[in-house]
Design a protein around this nucleic acid. Structure first.
Lengths: 184, 184
DNA sequence: CGATACATGTAACCGGTTACATGATTTT
DNA sequence: AAAATCATGTAACCGGTTACATGTATCG
């Protein structure tokens, strides 16, 4: 109902995973525990309440799994509204702030884009991402230059770590753009 | 008093900055707002309570700034105990989990190491960091290889982004080690 | 005179962490 | 018999976010 309701990274990850196939809370936790998506938390105290909130919002629905053996599972799948929210979220443009402050979330978004948005949007994402990352490299370089009073060699090196990371991001975006563009 | 008390990244950043010179809460917020350290939060609702906790723990102490003009500031400096906690924290070895789940915090630690720990420890940090990052690159590569069923091209590319980031980290550590080693 | 910078703080809210509870089935 | 796996959840705690309150000094 409310597409600009802000979605926490964990909720976005859940929405994205469930969009691929119905999953139980336990399935989600296993997935978080064994992949880098675990950065958005694998603890039961985060996953189950998040599922509850998403169900209450009407974005996912749980169906009792009718097996006799073991404890019954609740398999969650996306509702139409949930699908709309997910697509809206994945379609959002990238801001400079996203690239600086919410890199992880951006990559999470990107990882689900392949399924639900057009190739043109994927390309736009990569172009904007590369541009903003490039700009931020300049900002960081300027910071390095304007703080010759950087308190120590390690502080300078830590800043250079950030520069290297964003440069790698720029290269990745360029390469990914080539790959996405070449496979029609 | 308790060196294995876990310190939040924000508290560590505050401890580190104050270790360089006495600062007010406002100074800290400005610093967070204008540098990548802001990743550990610049909001007053985080900084002032954190200062309160650190003071209560006896790791920092605030002194009223005796200026007539403007509102009086409280300038915080490290106590001896706070200094000990900081050094203990900076001296810690790196675990695989740190490299996978707490990269930001690791770099924060590194940025303050130059002041308070020996060059040998800085080198050890870089060696361990490089090793663990290298190992994690292999883990991620294995994941890419073992999931040919990766749901989409963008999901694969997102994983490759992670690989590129950690590879850049390995290169950075190697280069940093050379720089630290060459300047006696 | 209004905006901005200086400066410190509080309160409501949200959500993640850790640890625990529960209980069946399968493996050692 | 014990441990591990499957499976869902709760409760206390902690701490970050947002927004607000308060008040002075300076700049345009």
């Amino acid at each position: 109902m409310n597409a600009d309701l802000s979605v926490s990274p964990l909720s976005l990850a859940i929405l994205g995973l469930i969009s691929l196939q119905p999953l139980s809370g336990y399935d989600l936790r296993k997935c978080f525990a064994t992949t880098p998506m675990g950065h958005f938390s694998a603890s039961p105290g985060a996953v189950y309440p998040a599922l509850g909130r998403l169900e209450k919002a009407g974005w996912i629905q749980g169906a009792q799994d009718d097996r006799q053996e073991l404890r019954p599972r609740r398999m969650f799948s996306l509702t139409e509204e949930g699908k709309a929210i997910l697509v809206a979220y994945l379609s959002r443009g990238i801001t400079r702030e996203d690239v600086i402050w919410r890199l992880d979330e951006l990559l999470l978004r990107f990882s689900f884009m392949g399924h639900w948005v057009t190739k043109a949007r994927v390309k736009r994402f990569l172009i904007q991402f590369g541009q903003e990352a490039c700009r931020y490299v300049e900002v960081l370089r300027a910071q390095r230059a304007s703080f010759p009073d950087l308190p120590s060699a390690t502080a300078r090196l830590a800043l250079e770590y950030g520069i290297e990371q964003y440069q790698a991001a720029v290269r990745w975006a360029d390469q990914a753009l080539v790959e996405v563009g070449s496979k029609p």
